[in-house]
Amino acid sequence: MTDPVITVRDATARDVPNLLMLYETSGIDRPGENDPERAAAHWSALRKAGAHVFIAESGDGQPLGTLTLFILPLLAHATAPAALVEDVAVHPAAQGKGIGRRLIHEAMERASAAGCYKLALSSNEKREAAHAFYDNLGFQRHGFSFVVPLGGAR
């Protein structure tokens, strides 16, 4: 049996409604909490900040997953940039089918091509299945992650 065709491509502003759906169905955001018009208006700022948003789709164009990759220029590490992954979301019906793996590998390839010395992400300490997934992809647990809420969106 062959695996269904899955493509990973750079998202565009037209994909914003599907991206919001993926954030909500995966549990990153609560259903109905996103404003599609506000998100669409924010797209250019996101891209201007250097975000690379990927979307994984089935052969018939159904959105299956997404992630956002930032390449951060740095002065330390002999000016090698670092990569940061945010907002990894896979539709619950597509979980366990290699979608997240494809997205992470795309981010790793792009970060490596950009000369990044590392690719980092953080995961809520309660998400043990996600931790096992990242461990399986070769990520190493490193240090601690600290957060301070600043009053913006959740």
Rank of each mutant, 00 (worst) to 15 (best):
A111Y: 06
L103H: 05
L137I: 03
D87H: 12
L72F: 05
T25M: 02
V88S: 04
E86G: 04
E125N: 12
E125W: 07
H131R: 05
E106R: 15
M1W: 01
A107I: 12
H42K: 10
A11S: 06
A78H: 12
G27I: 02
A120C: 12
N18R: 01
C116P: 10
L137H: 02
N18C: 02
V90L: 03
D3N: 08
L20K: 01
D35Y: 04
A129I: 07
R127T: 05
V147F: 02
F133H: 06
L137D: 02
H52I: 12
R9L: 01
I55V: 15
F133T: 08
W43C: 05
A39G: 02
Y134N: 06
Q95T: 11
D135G: 08
G50Y: 11
V148R: 14
A130K: 02
D29A: 13
A132H: 11
A76V: 15
E125L: 12
F70W: 14
M108H: 11
R30I: 02
D29P: 00
L67R: 07
H52D: 14
A129C: 00
M21A: 13
L74P: 00
I104Y: 11
D35K: 00
I104P: 01
H142T: 14
I104D: 02
A39R: 13
C116Q: 08
G27F: 04
A56R: 10
A13Q: 14
R101L: 10
S58K: 06
N124T: 04
E128F: 07
A41R: 15
E109G: 10
D135V: 00
F54A: 15
T68W: 08
A51D: 06
G32D: 04
P92C: 07
A93C: 02
K126A: 13
V53E: 12
Y134F: 11
M1T: 08
F139L: 03
T7Y: 00
R101K: 15
R30L: 12
W43V: 07
A39S: 14
A83V: 04
L22E: 03
E57N: 05
A76H: 14
